[in-house]
Design a protein around this nucleic acid. Structure first.
Length: 492
DNA sequence: AAAAAAC
């Protein structure tokens, strides 16, 4: 275990100068270490960034660029003159001893992941610029913003200072669990602002204002608490949007998110805004860059997003009955020892139908979607996380962010398509769904069910979009192809 | 015609 150095400061680094000792290496040094010629690097930085149309303001300068071939490439664009030092250890970050202890003892982390090494200094160095950060599924994004929130809280001040908004109740709860674990020794207080037992809403009116220092929750509840003056924003230092592309999309939570952001900024213009997601499509990317002003950004090319450890397959089958048959005979029978499985469907109805069919056939599966009551949702997620259930049928309520390391297989029982145009795949949802398997570089497999020519067309578009061919399992009717696939994926 | 959130 690493020792806490004597130079480690108290947890609040508010008002401190950016710490950049000469002994620490800048990113440009890393580039030198890799014997890349500086001029070539610079050229590459500019051209790649132009090609990818990162929506950079005209006054934005590309002054740092990071390119490590062994890792998926992350493009960093910073504005202004603030130098950022990539953190090779958590000690580099001037965290409080309590927070470091949480990272090592509770989280069992040894050193920052790639995205953490780059983003954490950007988050924690004054003047605390806004950040748009894209990183792979399962690469440790949550740690970035949770640590960011914890490190910026003034422990002496018993008021809300950091707020994180998530698209679902489940994700809010999961993020809160991470925060409490990581912050265990800091004494920092926290509250989860998500809907509770419906129809019991008199409780919310009589409740005292939130004094917790960190609040995590869903847009509706946060909005309500703010309008009821139960959630003060005057001391808010950090505002995080998890799954930010969805939170700021027109068909997502754009209105709520903007409202919350503006309400905070009205009282508190210097509240730092952090946007995290594995995906930012062009529309959202352009919109987002208008919402935040002076910001740093981290991006990954879409071809680099699908993890190599994840094997994708397509299964061509004739009808609904065959779909159910494949789940039953190929997945559930073969997959008994391959870890946990999530089956994604497009509608609540589809979820219920598949659930009933499989239960009628005598299989133990559980199902989650937004029409269930909150208690049941909590119970089903908890059972799955505790490993008590193996197979979970889900709508896109769990498509994003859901972190269960034992999930090795994801099935797209229905392919994700855009609601406004059914002949367009929903690329972002596809990526998020498959990212539920193979967390943090583990092995994993994805089976895509193809029933119609339309499905096939959707699948082809997905393959070409991510530039990753998806192997076909030769015959849905025989076991062999599935065995080979699962072996190839390292699961059998 | 949809998932979710919640008034």
């Amino acid at each position: 275990m690493a020792e806490v150095t004597e130079t480690t400061a108290a947890s609040s680094s508010e008002g401190k100068k950016p710490a950049v000792p000469e002994t620490k290496r800048l990113w440009s040094d890393e580039v030198d270490d890799e014997e890349v010629q500086p001029s070539a690097t610079e050229e590459k930085a500019v051209s790649e960034l132009n090609v990818d149309a990162l929506a950079i303001d005209e006054n934005t300068k590309v002054n740092k660029f990071l390119d490590e071939p062994e890792d998926s490439r992350i493009q960093a664009v910073t504005t202004g003159d603030t130098p950022y030092t990539s953190a090779s250890t958590f000690e580099d970050l001037n965290l409080s001893p309590e927070l470091l202890k949480g990272l090592y003892v509770e989280m069992k982390f040894q050193k920052p992941s790639k995205i953490q090494a780059i983003s954490l200094p950007m988050i924690m160095t004054p003047p605390y610029k806004d950040l748009i950060a894209q990183a792979h599924n399962g690469s440790g994004k949550t740690t970035c913003f949770v640590l960011g929130m914890l490190s910026r809280v003034d422990p002496q001040l018993q008021r809300p200072q950091a707020l994180c908004i998530c698209p679902t109740r489940e994700l809010s709860i999961q993020n809160m669990e991470v925060l409490r674990k990581m912050g265990k020794y800091t004494g920092i207080s926290s509250e989860c602002a998500v809907p509770i037992e419906s129809r019991n809403n008199d409780r919310s009116k009589s409740r005292p204002p939130i004094s917790a220092q960190v609040v995590i929750g869903t847009p509706g509840t946060i909005k309500r608490l703010m309008s009821q003056k139960k959630l003060g924003v005057t001391d808010m230092k950090v505002l995080v949007f998890d799954e930010a592309d969805h939170m700021l999309a027109k068909d997502g939570f754009q209105d709520d998110s903007l409202r919350i952001m503006k309400d905070i900024q009205r009282f508190n213009s210097h509240c730092q805004v952090l946007l995290f997601s594995a995906t930012f499509d062009e529309t959202v990317k352009n919109f987002v860059s208008k919402v935040v002003k002076d910001y740093n950004q981290l991006f990954v090319k879409k071809e680099d997003l699908s993890l190599e450890s994840l094997k994708q397959y397509k299964v061509i089958l004739p009808d609904e009955l065959a779909k159910i048959g494949v789940v039953k005979d190929r997945i559930l029978e073969l997959g008994e020892n391959i870890g946990q499985i999530i089956i994604f469907v497009n509608t609540k109805r589809s979820a219920s139908m598949l659930h009933t069919s499989l239960v009628d056939l005598g299989y133990e599966v559980t199902t989650i979607h937004g029409a269930l009551n909150l208690e049941d949702r909590d119970k089903i997620v908890k059972e799955f996380k505790d490993g008590l259930t193996q197979v979970l049928i889900s709508t896109d309520v769990l498509a994003r962010g859901f972190d269960q390391q034992q999930v090795n297989l994801v099935i797209n029982y229905d392919l994700p398509v855009k609601y406004e145009n059914q002949s367009e795949p929903h690329y972002e949802v596809y990526l998020h769904r498959i990212g539920r398997a193979g967390r943090f570089g583990r092995k994993g497999a994805v089976f895509n069910f193809i029933m119609t020519d339309h499905d096939l067309m959707i699948m082809r578009k997905i393959e070409s979009y991510f530039n990753s061919p998806v192997a076909e399992i030769p015959s849905w009717g025989s076991e062999e192809g599935f065995k080979v696939a699962l072996k190839e994926a390292g699961l059998l």
